[in-house]
Design a protein around this nucleic acid. Structure first.
Lengths: 208, 208
DNA sequence: GTCTATATCCTGATAGAC
DNA sequence: GTCTATCAGGATATAGAC
């Protein structure tokens, strides 16, 4: 099968995905437009045809994938077939996937890097991604409290203890990405499942 | 009082502290040697007299402060006057201080940024800082388990749930450093105290 | 130890042909 | 939309006087 011609939007998406990889590897300032162009197989001038500049490209990278990630959690939160306990368990599993594995989730150190230079990037990351994510999770907990499945907890405290471990795991796996024994030091599935157990215990819904 | 002459080692320390601030603000690649020299009130050439290059300076910044941070926790872990519960509570408080407020703790996004370029920096951060920190905390928990004050828990799981929230808090406060309502979104003391409560609950030592 | 001056390379970004 | 060629500025790093 021969190489398919790409539509403009697909080509833009390809550039975004390629440059996101590079940003994640070398940081924002450490990734040059030349390097991105080369990785995309085009010249710098062509790259500048698609994006107004490095800042605009970076912002596109950060924004890309917000909705897909949020939709995944929304799918669980809105599933009428599931009990609150199942919803929470499934939602946290998806959040681990998003935070630890996906590009959106792995972006946090990059946001920190540019937070002073592009405060608006941090703002949008917070309002368009972090806040909706927290709200979706909290919706599940609130429902469980209302139905009597969960006992009342403080919202900020619960978010702190839910997102904290998975964010650290994501950060640690970026920091120590070159370790050959990364999975031994930071095993995602094992830590995630134990974490879910503790959260259900907190909500007074520990054992079956 | 007139400006005191600085010893060579103090001058080096001053450069390290000044450049650490800049690295934290703009990242590694985003901070130039010119900017560092200017902030230190010397020229680039003088800066290169003290450090072999940007890499060496950065590594000095990361390494600087390991011991001071670890000594603080060791002081609590070794205090014979305290009960295991008090030790744990005090240690976590100190860990919050270190992780959220101190330069060493705030370095994580920087390590992530350079993790592929300088894998040895990540290695040393892990072996000289992260691992000793985990070991000191675990020593407290083990003692509590041995004395019957705490019930047995899994080491990795406990570390995941202890360090996770504080690391995320540190990262979030870096990411959203420009927010005027930062303390409202991420209040350190409140989240920390609630977190300690949950940890003690996990260890079966919840209420007095 | 600090300076001025400079070397060398790479950066983000653009002009204009095809 | 992609290319070659080019710009002005900034990057790391060094040479050599004081």
């Amino acid at each position: 099968m021969m190489e398919q011609e790409l539509s403009p939007v697909d080509r833009r998406t390809r550039i975004i995905e390629t440059s996101t990889e590079l940003f994640l590897e070398k940081g924002f300032a450490g990734t040059s437009m030349s390097a991105i162009a080369k990785a995309c197989g085009i010249t710098k001038a062509s790259l500048y045809h698609h994006f107004d500049g490095k800042d605009a490209l970076f912002i596109a990278c950060v924004t890309h994938g917000y909705t897909a990630a949020l939709d995944a959690i929304e799918g669980v939160a809105g599933d009428a077939e599931l009990t609150p306990k199942q919803k929470l368990s499934d939602a946290v599993k998806i959040l681990y996937d998003i935070t630890v594995e996906s590009n959106v989730g792995r972006m946090s150190p990059l946001i920190a890097e540019v937070s002073r230079t592009f405060p608006n990037v941090a703002r949008s990351f917070h309002s368009e991604y972090i806040e909706p994510e927290r709200a979706l999770l909290w919706k599940i907990v609130e429902e469980g409290i209302a139905s009597g499945d969960f006992k009342p907890v403080d919202q900020n405290q619960f978010a702190h203890l839910t997102f904290g471990p998975m964010v650290m795991l994501s950060l640690a796996r970026e920091m120590f990405a070159t370790f050959e024994d990364l999975d031994e030091h930071f095993p995602v599935d094992e830590l995630r499942d134990g974490h879910i157990g503790v959260l259900l215990q907190m909500l007074g819904s520990a054992s079956d």
